[in-house]
């Protein structure tokens, strides 16, 4: 059995690979999968077919991937929601966010950005926090839904700055963004696509939720710099396989993915997405997944979100 596995690993990949995306086409996870699969396929010498298996906040496709044969021909585009947040949102999950999978490579992370409408009275995060302290329950912050990165980072900000804001959930980040641009909301900790509106002068970017400043928006400070520590939200994207994927296959995909991450083409596009390239070893990725899972336990609890 072990020998057969080794032989298989040496010839890997000998047929097309499927990459399961547990979300519908068009979102961040899908975009990431389509962006990485093509150059990765070129290096592996076999095509990679992206397969959308949407449902239940990513749980349906993630569970499906966990049940695939661990032979390296069915990979999963892992991300923050199914692996770090959903375990706290859903009482019954068909997979273990860590144990059901073999981490292969962490691709990149994307921060959220505190944005307010251009006409807003706030010109800095401190002004906003000071106002919120003086007027509890007055400010509305939008999100793409309960348990979304916008919601959870809003909760982080409320906790860190000890302020009370009203959460207004939308069905997806798009409609929430529209409401913010239109001035129906006061603020949102939105994903980088919101930067389009910042460039167009419809929104103001006040702070970023990463630990260091983002090269795409070098003059936007981090929350740490502003003296509001503890607001870290980075949506991560990484490739995982079903638990028990052979070491050799993991190493091979990891090596090629790391090489892809170093190509100028990907680097350029990543900068446009205001994402940060990660890469690294499978072990580092596993540690990262474990620590993220642990970190979100309290955040989700504070947010009061519960899907079932």
């Amino acid at each position: 059995m072990a020998l057969a596995g080794l032989a298989q690993a040496q010839t890997y990949p000998s047929k097309p690979i499927r990459m399961i995306v547990p979300f519908a086409p068009g979102g961040g996870v899908d975009t990431t999968a389509r962006m990485i699969s093509q150059p990765l396929a070129e290096r592996l010498g076999q095509p990679i077919a992206v397969e959308n298996r949407a449902g239940a906040g990513g749980n349906v496709g993630t569970e499906l991937a966990a049940r695939e044969k661990p032979d390296g021909y069915a990979l999963l585009m892992g991300s923050l929601s199914p692996h770090s947040v959903n375990p706290y949102l859903y009482s019954r999950l068909g997979f273990d966010p860590i144990k059901s999978f073999t981490p292969i490579v962490l691709l990149w992370t994307v921060p959220n950005i505190l944005v307010v409408p251009a006409a807003s009275r706030f010109n800095s995060a401190q002004e906003l926090v000071a106002y919120a302290k003086a007027n509890p329950g007055k400010l509305n912050f939008g999100s793409g839904g309960v348990g979304s990165s916008q919601h959870l980072s809003g909760v982080m900000l409320s906790t860190a700055a000890k302020i009370d804001m009203v959460h207004v959930a939308f069905k997806g980040a798009g409609p929430a963004g529209t409401a913010l641009v239109a001035g129906h909301l006061d603020l949102m900790l939105d994903t980088p696509p919101a930067l389009v509106h910042v460039a167009a002068g419809r929104l103001k970017a006040l702070a970023v939720t990463s630990k260091s400043r983002n090269p795409a928006i070098p003059n936007v400070p981090t929350f740490d710099e502003l003296g509001i520590p503890g607001v870290y939200m980075e949506v991560w994207y990484g490739i995982v396989g079903p638990a028990g994927t052979p070491r050799e296959i993991v190493n091979r995909v990891n090596k090629e993915a790391n090489a892809v991450l170093q190509t100028p083409e990907i680097k350029k596009r990543i900068l446009e997405f205001a994402a940060q390239i990660r890469g690294g070893t499978p072990e580092e990725f596993e540690q990262f997944m474990i620590s993220e899972l642990k970190r979100f336990a309290d955040v989700v609890k504070t947010s009061g979100a519960k899907a079932e």
Partner: peptide, 20 residues
């Protein structure tokens, strides 16, 4: 399916597909 405001699953009968 999932209630947008509270995140609660309604009438989904424990079927993950029905939460959408």
């Amino acid at each position: 399916g999932t209630d947008v405001e509270s995140g609660m699953a309604r009438f989904s009968f424990e079927a993950p597909e029905l939460t959408d």
